[in-house]
């Protein structure tokens, strides 16, 4: 009897502190944030008017909003696969019996701790038109130098590469933790059956990594859709808005233009987009994952 009651109560006890502490500081501000999208609030005054759907109507005719949406999608489309492939590859490489795994793991972690303002300085130098290392390298192949960050065609791509650099280390560590968790008995059994490396990868490793991949895809998607820091430091959304992402625009609207209501409306749209994409990821990648408790 006690056993049954305990099992009924246990999950609520387990989730309670984590859920409470999280929602306590996010739920009400999020609801207020949604509410603000129906006002013309300017942050600095307690007065505001309800304006109904006017902020949303304006979004439809705002070219910069359209541009920033497209930029955000382009950023995400390049960044997400890049991050997943490179971090998985690194984790697989490190999960072999190489020496110095500890050393490499530490090195790969460094981008996560290097302050982004400092890292940006170095990336700006890498992309520098005159003495940047990138132009030096492509020069070896006979290609003409470019002004990477000041060119509408290359600015966003340059920032994507930096974004991958920034995100790979962390996700590699998560993959590695998952790989370390896979029981060796699976591999031993497969080896006895004569399965080669690729077969083991395809039929054992990747399927068992599915929950981790789902997690990484969803969190990377959320991160990509909210990209802001590099644009803010390196390009200020330029040249000619070619790196203006939606959160960059939201930030400008809220804190520079004092149009918090409008910023909130953009945030709600971004929220809905993120929700839909996450749901698709979930349905698509969540399939076939071994959810014992379902």
């Amino acid at each position: 009897m006690w056993y049954k009651i305990q099992r009924k109560i246990a999950p609520y006890v387990f989730i309670f502190p984590g859920v409470l502490f999280y929602l306590m500081v996010t739920f009400i501000p999020a609801i207020i944030g949604v509410g603000l999208s129906f006002t013309n609030w300017s942050i600095i005054t307690p007065k505001f008017r309800w304006v109904g759907l006017r902020n949303y109507e304006r979004l439809l005719t705002d070219d910069l909003f359209k541009t920033s949406l497209i930029n955000t999608f382009r950023y995400a489309v390049w960044l997400i696969p890049g991050v997943i492939i490179v971090s998985l590859l690194l984790a697989l490489l490190l999960n072999t019996k190489v020496r110095g795994i500890t050393f490499f793991r530490t090195i790969y972690y460094l981008p996560m701790v290097t302050p982004i303002a400092v890292a940006s300085v170095i990336w700006m130098w890498i992309y520098d038109r005159r003495t940047g290392i990138l132009n030096y390298i492509i020069g070896l192949f006979g290609l003409a130098p470019r002004n990477w960050l000041n060119d509408i065609k290359t600015a966003l791509g340059s920032i994507v590469v930096m974004g991958i650099w920034l995100a790979v280390g962390g996700n590699m560590i998560i993959y590695l933790a998952a790989l370390q968790g896979i029981s060796r008995s699976y591999y031993e059994a497969a080896e006895i059956d004569g399965a080669g490396y690729w077969q083991r990868l395809r039929f054992i490793t990747l399927p068992l990594l599915k929950p981790t991949t789902l997690f990484i895809v969803i969190t990377t998607t959320m991160g990509a859709l909210r990209a802001f820091a590099q644009m803010n430091i390196m390009t200020q959304g330029g040249p000619l808005n070619s790196t203006t992402t939606i959160v960059f625009y939201i930030f400008q609207a809220a804190f520079t233009d004092l149009r918090m209501g409008y910023a909130a409306a953009m945030s709600v749209v971004l929220f809905l987009i993120t929700l839909v994409l996450t749901f698709i990821d979930w349905k698509f990648l969540g399939k076939g994952v071994n959810y014992d408790a379902e």
Binding site: Y22, L23, T26, F27, P29, A30, I32, G33, V34, L36, M222, R226, V247, I250, F251, A254, F255, M260, A263, A264, S267, V268, L270, F271, T274, L275, T278
Partner: peptide
Amino acid sequence: ATMMIPYPVT
């Protein structure tokens, strides 16, 4: 879902 609302607004 609450994780998805950008922080400038919250």
